[in-house]
């Protein structure tokens, strides 16, 4: 949710500096003892997204520590990962890669190709969500439910939590894609940057969860 709001703000900024609010006039970044004018400190929206990802990371760190504690108990029975998870992982990683290709095309003023790759990004993302649901169904078909055993509880909770973040990401994606269609993003300036940070983070987070749940 905050991520979308950040994006809104990022959208607002140009209007504001062009309009009545003189905020871009003062405290010009780059003044020596003033705020950092370069890198992430010169980019509040990017900084905000990264800080948000920091807090999301802590959520999963908390969950991981709960998982580690719980795994040490006697009634732990490891779950075999549904095979579809590996396909899902591929889809999500490919989605991230497609997004990078889209950004490159975009920066190179190749708008039609950029649009295609953006569509591929979204499609693969949606495929991942559907695939995760498929994994739930596969487990349920084996009679393994949320409360069946501690490993399955964590599997459902962690994939659900990751899925919610991903659905938020898809909503954000929809906003970005529609703006791209309406040409309110300037080519060469790469308006996909903030979304890309969030999207790649979710892909990395998923690989991490997969490792924690089934490999480590």
């Amino acid at each position: 949710m905050p991520a979308e709001a950040l994006e809104d703000r990022a959208k607002e900024t140009p209007t504001h500096s062009g309009g009545g609010r003189p905020e871009s006039r003062c405290g010009a970044p780059g003044g020596d003892p003033g705020p950092g004018g370069t890198g992430i400190l010169g980019d509040p929206a990017l900084f905000g997204v990264c800080a948000f990802l920091g807090t999301v990371t802590m959520l999963f760190v908390g969950m991981t520590s709960a998982y580690m504690v719980r795994r040490a108990s006697a009634d732990w029975r490891p779950l075999a990962p549904p095979a579809i998870l590996w396909l899902n992982t591929g889809a999500l990683l490919a989605s991230s890669a497609a997004l990078e290709v889209a950004r490159r095309r975009f920066r190179g003023w190749d708008l039609p190709a950029a649009r295609t790759w953006v569509a591929v990004t979204g499609l693969l993302g949606a495929l991942f969500v559907a695939g995760q649901y498929g994994a739930w169904r596969a487990l349920a078909a084996q009679g393994i439910f949320l409360a069946s055993n501690p490993h399955s509880s964590f599997f459902y909770v962690l994939t659900g939590l990751h899925g919610l973040h991903l659905l938020g990401g898809l909503a954000w994606f929809a906003a970005v894609a529609s703006r791209l269609r309406r040409m309110t993003l300037t080519p060469g300036e790469d308006g996909l940057r903030l979304f890309a940070v969030y999207w790649h983070f979710l892909a990395g987070l998923w690989v991490y969860l997969l490792l924690v749940l089934f490999v480590l």
């Binding site: 949710m1 405290g27 003892p33 509040p44 800080a51 807090t55």
Partner: peptide, 27 residues
């Protein structure tokens, strides 16, 4: 917690990114 998180993001970003000229951290 959701509201506090949104506030915290704002606090952090504003204090670290948006200060007037001359307002270094040590000031």
């Amino acid at each position: 917690i959701a509201s506090f998180t949104m506030g915290g993001l704002n606090f952090l970003t504003t204090i670290l990114n948006l200060r007037t000229k001359g307002m270094s951290l040590t000031r």
